[in-house]
Each structure stands twice: as structure tokens, then as C-alpha cells.
Design a protein around this nucleic acid. Structure first.
Lengths: 205, 205, 205, 205
DNA sequence: GATGAATGAGGCTTCATTCAT
DNA sequence: CATGAATGAAGCCTCATTCAT
């Protein structure tokens, strides 16, 4: 239950102690996020884990299963982190700023839509459904925070679902780099601040 | 060893009007947008075109070439459409609304970032660069419209690049559907209006 | 999308004795020698082995790998046989005669030069180097026998490397057949004798 | 992408006045000798000639035809050169030395045996026969020179066919390079001299 | 003469998946 | 638990060849 606290810096290759199934899931998550569903092969996962393909299949019946589990678990973890950040006893704007910073620091941009399009032909409808539902729950956390803020009069009443999705959509702007690899703002903090300011205006404040 | 005679060669000119190369490019564009780079096979493209794989390779030396050309040409077309819409002699907000409607009507969400991540290991750096540059030019059209509006005092001065990317990012919200396949707003027009309103506030108006 | 169930997987152990990898290597060696690198396809090899292409790739990552291993192992075997023949306690000329007979009986003419030219664009430089070195070691065995004979005064002192290569070159004459399929001498033994006599003179005896 | 750009400024090989068919044959000969039958494609030949594949097919009905013609014409040219060299009014040994030098200077080692093995599955039996016959005629020139020398008492009487083939076989030693790319003798002239000396002894002189 | 367009066949390689051990 | 061995399917790409123009 207790999520291990990640020290700052890179996650290392060091799979000591962890049960094999967890190693596989972690490695798979990272690979899928970095390269996409199709490009990552079961053998890639196995090799990075230091086991054989057959072992991966021992834990996950199909690649689609592994992918679904990886994405779902990841979204659950993200939801928890979002929840923690948004539960702090601070003004909403400050909480959103922290949310933005955390999201932009994550090396991977979580583009569920993109992943779903790529995998849509390979996943069963149950699996797609399961991912969709987990994704929805992620957004609900943010929605709820907006609803609470509206009820407390911290922000004007408006469509909370639109608000939640807009915020996450705006965050993707932070990952943009132009043809010369320059991001829109040089520092992550500046980027986060600008996005939140823009968003805050958009909410009607 | 005897060679068998086979009925090969150029079939009688089958003039349906469009040159084969264009057919291929159009079909490929559609398939790539719908399913992503990896999932679409050269054979898929060929079959949908009613030609053989070899014919596709006659016009495009590699799958990466076909993909790059498809994406670049598409972005050029989109840029033209954006330019036309934004060149109208109307208040900016109305032009943006039209932009939004047009974009949401297009069956495809143009998620260049997602495509690039998926294809990044398959494309040459020249190809990636070419796509990036074309993408930048797309955004520049919107940026320029924002700059003009700022100079005319139609909107407050702010970071036009951020503004351009934010707008496009917000549009993606329009494609969202929840686990029950419900979009955030039932009608496209309503969706577009809400997004533009939100955006308009974000610009500081 | 539903995956179909297929009856794949490891078939019941079909122990004919030789491990599959050895079968593949042996068959590949024979095919490459008979037909050359380019003409032999991985599928040819697989079919002659009674396995599928994928099985061949399970043991050899590329065709070039399979070829290199096949040629190297073969040259090592040949070197051993040459060594055995030349190690006998007999006059050099008799040993050379036996060498010649053995070589002419072998169905394959070992034309490393030819193989290398054909494969040179397909092999990595490491692979070419490995083959070259193994080839050199083959010749060294014959060189050493010549050096020993020179030291014992059995033949006049001369350039042993030239001597070794000349002998092998002369042996290729034995495989010549004219347009009517007639060899130069009707019997192998006669052919061998004539070549060795010619060679023996050439050495200056 | 546009790929026109044909009309002006093509830095192509300058095949001046020669008729197209000759250009094709010359280019094909060179390519086949350098790389072998299988590796050279009709398109390779066409491109090096500055024409299209269809043009090559206009002159040669099949690749096997082109190959056969190329090889046969080449062997005829070689036969002429051998004939010229061997017709000089000099002692046989000197003529052989010149033969050897000329052969070793030619960039390509003419290994008909190797070519035939590689092409054997692709050529018709008529084509194989034709090449064989032309090859035989090449050797006959040398045979005849040996016969004449025997009749003049310049060399002992022996089997002229064996003598001819042995000489050509020995010449291949001149092209050998070890794993470090060192030939047996550093200079071509020295190599030729050593080979001819060895051969001369072999003839029984 | 020469070419542009097209094709069927086939070659190399990868991959998800299976199953006996 | 874990793996080694195997496979069918499919994907990318090349090539000899053909034929209308």
C-alpha cells in the first residue's frame, strides 16, 4: 500500500528485492510510455528485466494484458499523486501550480488519447473500457477539487469537467519544443506559472 | 532454369482522374491519422489504393518517406485552411470560433506530438526535422493572428507562442469522450463556443 | 480486437539425436557451398532442416551470421583434416598425394575467395576479418609442413607461403570439366598424381 | 515531394559516342565482375548507364541474357589479348611472364568457375553451354602455345591441357591477400616472376 | 529507341504466443 | 517459477519482368 518515497533523481535499474511481477510491470510501464505500445516488444520488456519472454508470459497472458495493467496501475498512481497535491490546505491556485510543476517534471507526457489510438486495434473492448474508466477517475479528482473551490466561492461556478480537461490539456503545452529544440519558456517553473496564470484567467477569475 | 511466363507489366491505363501517387498519399494520410504510424502497414495502404505494395514502393522508397510526406503535406494543407479562416475580416473571437468549429469537425485530431513519439525511432533525423519545421509553421499562422490582434489592441499583449499552443491544446479537449462515450458537451458548436470562451478569458480579456 | 487461438508452441521433443542448431549449421554449410551465399535463402535452409525460418533465426540472428559460422566451422574442420593428413610419418610427396586425393574427393571445391567476393557487401567487416583469419590458419598448416620438409632437406628451401597457396590453387584444376563435361583426366587418382608431380617439379625437386 | 529535377546538370559518366547497347554491356560486365551475378540488379546496371531499366530490357531480354553476353564477350576479348601476348616472337618463358603481368594487373580476377556456380540456377543450359565453350576456347589459346613450344623442343612434352589450366590456376595466387591485407609478394612484378619460375619448374624444365 | 508505371514473387527479419521441461 | 525451443503470421523492402505510350 505504502508507495515508496522516490528520492529525487533518476529511477535506477536496481531491481533488488522486488517481486518479479512488479519488476516486469515497472519496466513495461516505462518502456510503453517512452516508445508506445507497438514499438515495445515482449522481448524488449523481458530483456530489460533480465528474464526471458516466457517469464513475462507467465505473469501476463498477453501483451495487451501487460499494457492494460501497466497503464491502469500508472494512472492509479498518478491519481493518488494528484489527489495528494490537491488535498493540501492551500489556495487552489497554489495547488494547481504544484500540480503543474509535478506534471511537467515527469519525464513522460501522459498522453492517454495517443496510446489508446495506437493500441485500439490490439486491445479487447473490455481492456479499452477499463483504461477509459481509470482515466476518467483521474480527471474526477481534479474535477472534485474544482467543484469544492466553486462551492467555497474560490472560483466562479462553471463546468468542472471542462475545467479539468482544459487544465490537463494546457499542461501538454509545456512539453512542446520547436524545430531547434527550444521550449516555449526556458525554465519549467516559469512554464508552469504561465500556464496556471493563463488557466486561472480562463476560469474567469 | 526455365523462367515461367507471368502476366505482369503495366495494366491498361485506368484513368480515374487522380494520379496514383496522389491516391497513395491521400489514403496513407488517412490511415496514418486514424491508426498511427506503426499499425498501418504498407500493404494496408496498397490494398486500400487498389494497387500492390510494389507500386507504393515505386513512389515512396520507404514507409518513413511515405509517412513524412503524408504528414508534411497534411500540415501544409491545414496551415492553409487556418490561414484562410484567420484572414477573414472579423473580430478575432469570431475567427477563433470558426477555427475551433472547423478543427472539431475534422474527424482526425492532429496530434503531431503523439505521432512523433511513435515514429521517432523509425524516422531519420532529417525527416523528424522536416516534420517539426512544418509543424512550427502551422503554429506560426495562429501566432501571427494573435500578434496582429495585440497590435490592434483587440487583446492584451501577452506571449503569442504560448497563446497559439494553448489554443490548439484546448481544442483537443473537444475530442474527449468518457467511458460511456459521452463527450463533454453534446454538440460540437456548444463545445467550440465553450472552449473559445474559456480561451478568451485566458487571454486576459 | 480478438486474437485467434493458434496451435503454436514447442512441439513434443523430437529427439533424432543431433541438436537442431547443428542440423541447421550442417545443412547451411552444404547449401552455401553448393550454391553460394546469395542464392541460398533462409527459407531454403529452414525447409531442408524441417523447421521454420523463425527457428533458424532463433539460432542465428542474421543470414550473414549463419554464413560466417558455417564457413568458419567448415574451415576449422578442413584444417584439422589437413593437419591429420600432413602429420603422417611418410615422405612429403606421399602426404601431398593423399591431401590431393582427399581434396578432390570432397564434392565441394573450397573457393573462399569466390565466396568472399560474393558476400563482401553483405558481411560486416568483423565477419570478413574472422573468415580471413580462419582461412589463413588453414594455409598455415600446409606452410608449416613445407617449412618442416625444407628444414629436413626433403625439398629445396623456397617461399613456403607461395608453396602452400600454389598447391591449393593447383588442386582447383582437378574440378575443371570442359564443355562436354569431361575432366582433364578420367580418374581422380590419376588427376591427383599428375597435379602432385607437377607441383613437386615446381618446388624445384 | 517533388523529384523532377532531371533536365540539366547531371554529373553522369561520360559514355561519349558509344551506342547504348555497348554502354550497357560494358557497364554490366564491370558490375558483374566486381560484385557477382546475384548482387547486381538490372536497375543497378541501368542507373550506372544513365538509362532506365526498360531500356536495358529493350536490348537484353533477360538478366541471364545480359550476363551471358557480358561474360562471353569478355572472354573473347581476353582470348584475343592472350593470343596477342603469346604470339610474340620471344622465348615461351618471357611470353608467359608477360601474360602473368597482364593478368595480375587486371583489377578483376576472372573466376569463371565461381561465376558459373553462382549463376547456375538462373541460366538456361544453352547459356551455360555457351559460356563453357567460350571458356574452353580461352584455354585453348594457351594450350596451343604450349603444344607449339613442345614441338619446338622448348619445353618437355607433357599434357598441354593440364599445363594450361595449371598456369591460370597459379595466377590466382597473385590475388591472395592475408587477413592484414598483405599480398604474398609486395610487387606485382615480383609476384609474376615467382609464379612463372614455379610454373616453369613444374613443366619439367 | 526509350521510358514510366505496374506487378507477383520472394527474401530478410521480427514478433506474439505456446508448451514441454 | 522460469525457461528454452519452436512456430505462423506478418512487415519491410527488392527485383526481374512486362507493357502501353
Amino acid at each position: 500500500m505504502q508507495q515508496e518515497r522516490r528520492p529525487l533523481g533518476r529511477p535506477r535499474q536496481d531491481h533488488k528485492g522486488k517481486p518479479t511481477k512488479n519488476i516486469i510491470l515497472d519496466v513495461a510501464t516505462r518502456l510503453f510510455l517512452e516508445q508506445g505500445y507497438q514499438v515495445v516488444s515482449m522481448d524488449d520488456v523481458a530483456k530489460k528485466c533480465g528474464v526471458t519472454k516466457a517469464t513475462v508470459y507467465y505473469y501476463y497472458k498477453t501483451k495487451a494484458d501487460l499494457f492494460t495493467d501497466a497503464m491502469v496501475q500508472m494512472m492509479i498512481r498518478i491519481r493518488k499523486r494528484i489527489f495528494d497535491i490537491l488535498s493540501a490546505d492551500k489556495p487552489l491556485k497554489e495547488r494547481l501550480l504544484e500540480f503543474a510543476k509535478a506534471h511537467l517534471q515527469a519525464t513522460v507526457g501522459i498522453d492517454i488519447k495517443g496510446f489508446m489510438k495506437e493500441a485500439k486495434n490490439s486491445l479487447s473492448s473490455e481492456q479499452l473500457q477499463q483504461m477509459k474508466e481509470t482515466e476518467d477517475k483521474m480527471y474526477e479528482v481534479l474535477e472534485q477539487a474544482l467543484i469544492n473551490a466553486m462551492e467555497k466561492g474560490e472560483i466562479p461556478k462553471s463546468h468542472p469537467q471542462l475545467g479539468a480537461h482544459s487544465f490537463v490539456a494546457l499542461l501538454t503545452v509545456g512539453n512542446y519544443k520547436d524545430a531547434d529544440q527550444h521550449p516555449i519558456f526556458p525554465s519549467l517553473d516559469e512554464m508552469a506559472k504561465q500556464i496556471v496564470d493563463f488557466y486561472w484567467n480562463g476560469l474567469g477569475n
